[in-house]
Computed example of a mutant assay.
Amino acid sequence: MRKLFVLFNLILFVNFYGNCQTKNLKPKEIVKSEFGNILDSLKVKGSILIYDVKNKTYYSNDFEWSKTGVIPASTFKIPNSIIALESGIIKNDSTIFKWNGDKRRFKKWEEDLTFKKAFQVSCVPCYQEIARKIGVKRMKSYLKKLSYDGMIFDTLTIDNFWLEGKSIFSQMQQIDFLERLYFSQLPISKRTENIMRDIMQLEKTENYILSGKTGWGMSNGMNNGWLVGYLETSNSVYFFATNVEKQETDMEEFPIIRLNSTKEALKKLKLIK
């Protein structure tokens, strides 16, 4: 009987140790030259990074690029929205931003916008208003709490530090942050999580839900484009962060390139059709 007891405990220990080892395994990094071919065909340079949570595997054409920080641009609207909701500056997704009649960069910004719509059309003046209301001290406190590192700002740059300046965030950091948001590992309310999940949705089909946020800034004199988010399928979730650069010639197609290149990479992994 004693031998059986010892054997049983040994089996339990082996299983427990094996599970711990699996959980602590460093994610694999697999180079996918096909992703580079996609970007070449679209005449941009950069990196597509996709993370398979279930298999703890990163896929990218350029891991050096994916680990290098650049200005986060409007992808910062994700933490900015979270902070606005958590601090009470924004009450809910129906909160209205009144347009004062001033000329704005895009026609779609020249109207009264709900918070949800402001996020989805990436209204810069709306989010500059949010940042000013949050203020430097509170913004720094919340970013520290969220472990959203790399942002550099003061009272003079509180409303544009994510668009220009020295703030940097990498594709790897983007995925880490999104993963923590998705799996409820951020110190925020469930209500805020649910609002973010709703306003971030880009596409919903019978087979998947695609959620995320675009960004467009300037880096070293080049147009720098972002698309970050996650793909939910029936059996798993995959996180992605695409960052591409293009010289300022024929820029009309640049916005859609971020989405198209990401979806093509997801197709290469047979995650969508």
Rank of each mutant, 00 (worst) to 15 (best):
Y58M: 05
K263T: 03
V124M: 10
G221Q: 07
K3G: 05
N100G: 13
K91N: 14
L39C: 04
M151C: 03
K77R: 10
L266M: 11
L186V: 10
P72M: 06
K43E: 15
I89T: 08
A241D: 00
T157Y: 00
F5P: 04
Q247K: 12
A241T: 00
K3H: 12
G229K: 03
S74D: 09
F153R: 00
G217P: 01
D62M: 06
N37Y: 05
T249H: 09
W216C: 05
N220I: 06
I11H: 12
L231F: 04
I257P: 01
S94R: 12
K270R: 12
M218G: 12
F240L: 01
K28P: 00
C20D: 13
R191G: 12
L202E: 13
M200K: 05
N15W: 12
Y51N: 06
S184Y: 14
V44M: 03
S87Q: 02
K3I: 11
K145I: 10
Y148K: 03
S74N: 05
A73I: 02
K273E: 14
M1H: 11
D149N: 15
N220T: 10
C126K: 00
S74C: 09
N243G: 02
E245A: 07
N223L: 09
S122C: 11
A131G: 08
K108T: 12
T155W: 07
S141C: 02
D159R: 05
S167H: 02
S33M: 12
F177L: 02
L231P: 06
K204G: 10
L85C: 04
T205S: 15
A131H: 03
K32H: 08
I48Y: 02
Y182V: 08
F169V: 11
S167A: 07
E253H: 06
L49Q: 01
N223C: 03
S189D: 14
V228M: 02
R138N: 15
F16D: 05
D154T: 07
P255I: 02
N243K: 07
D250N: 14
G46V: 02
F153N: 00
S189H: 13
T214G: 10
M222G: 00
C123P: 10
E86G: 06
